[in-house]
Simulated assay, not measured.
Amino acid sequence: MSAVTGATGVYRPTHLDVLESEAVHIFREVAGEFERPVVLFSGGKDSIVMLHLALKAFWPAPVPFSLLHVDTGHNFPEVIEYRDRTVAKHGLTLHVARVQEYVDDGRLTERPDGTRNPLQTVPLLDAIERHRFDAVFGGGRRDEEKARAKERVFSLRDEFGAWDPRRQRPELWDLYNGRHMVGEHVRVFPLSNWTELDVWQYIEREGIELPEIYFAHEREVFSRSGMWLTAGEWGGPKESEPVEKRMIRYRTVGDMSCTGAVDSDATTVADVIAEIAASRLTERGATRADDKLSEAAMEDRKREGYF
């Protein structure tokens, strides 16, 4: 879907043009205002779109930021392969903070449920401090979850990496305040005003390649807490959880222990768009067990420094 010209010859941008323009403006604003920004890049669809926008924002110059991935050690192999291939293709610098290293040396302790998503906070904050990043781009969107709906585009974090919703700043007329004290940093969300459907429509328009895990494929899965999970070293399945082959796809990707698949026969981007348009559940609400721990699960983690 591209911009159209009406009968009067007036240029009328589509909603995707408007979202793209806003995101490009945010990237350029950060480049001009901060010294050491970094882009969180996991190989998930939102970070892929975010990187695509960054490439557009500075083309033909290279992206003036490095990338950062907090690797739980329980990622989907297809996604890690895509991550590394994309970094090599564009000649980017990737920093990887590995949860496994923190578990091995005792700085973090494995959770009884096997999930490592909540364990990402300490490696993330350590990486930000070690590399002195003062702005960190994330692919969070307001439609994903209630705590993320409270975020501003520029979200201040204190010297401990914690988020305080009472310190949120007004952002009238697309004016962003990146002022921060020494030791603080700003999380930046260029996709704040996008929806899951917007992301997929943009992927279709731009012809963006994604990991195959986002499309329907036959996979061995087992059921837990109403979700289809993939077996792995993280601890699943239990003896009471039989494994079966199903046609599934992933709406979001993260730690294998808490990211569920959905039954699907959507094998193309157009199929996925039609499927999402008919859905009444957000992607995280439908497929992320870590967000179901409590009503305030995400907000509690954000207050501790999680993205």
Results as ranks from 00 to 15, higher is better:
Lys302Glu: 12
Asp271Met: 03
Lys238Arg: 15
Glu196His: 08
Val253Gln: 05
Leu281Phe: 11
Val253Lys: 05
Arg301Gln: 12
Ala278Ile: 00
Glu241Ser: 13
Glu204Asp: 13
Thr195Tyr: 09
Trp228Arg: 04
Asp290Ala: 12
Ala296Gln: 14
Ala261Trp: 02
Pro237Trp: 14
Leu281Arg: 07
Ile273Met: 08
Gly207Val: 07
Arg251Thr: 11
Tyr214Leu: 07
Leu293Pro: 00
Trp194His: 09
Glu244Pro: 01
Arg284Val: 11
Glu244Val: 15
Gly236Gln: 10
Trp228Pro: 07
Val272Ala: 06
Glu209Thr: 13
Leu197Cys: 04
Glu295Phe: 03
Thr230Asp: 14
Asp300Asn: 10
Gln201Asp: 01
Lys238Ala: 14
Glu209His: 15
Glu304Leu: 15
Glu239Tyr: 09
Gly305Val: 13
Arg224His: 12
Glu275Trp: 01
Thr268Gln: 04
Asp271Gln: 05
Glu241Pro: 12
Asp265Ser: 14
Tyr214Asp: 12
Arg251Gln: 12
Ile248Phe: 04
Glu295Ser: 10
Glu220Met: 12
Asp271Tyr: 01
Ser279Cys: 06
Val269Ser: 10
Asp198Tyr: 04
Ala261Met: 08
Trp234Asp: 09
Glu283Met: 08
Ser294Trp: 11
Gly226Lys: 04
Trp234Val: 09
Ser223Met: 14
Arg251Tyr: 03
Glu283Pro: 00
Pro242Glu: 14
Ile203Asp: 05
Asp265Trp: 02
Met247His: 07
Glu275Tyr: 02
Ala289Asn: 08
Ala261Gly: 05
Asp198His: 14
Arg249Pro: 11
Leu229Gly: 03
Glu283Val: 15
Arg284Asp: 00
Glu304Gly: 05
Ala286Phe: 01
Ser257Gly: 13
Met247Trp: 15
Glu299Lys: 12
Phe215Tyr: 15
Met298Phe: 03
Arg284Gln: 09
Glu239Lys: 11
Arg280Asn: 13
Ser257Tyr: 01
Glu304Ile: 07
Gly207Ala: 11
Met298Leu: 12
Gly226Gln: 09
Lys302Asn: 13
Glu244Ile: 14
Val272His: 02
Ile213Pro: 02
Ala274Cys: 00
Ser294Cys: 10
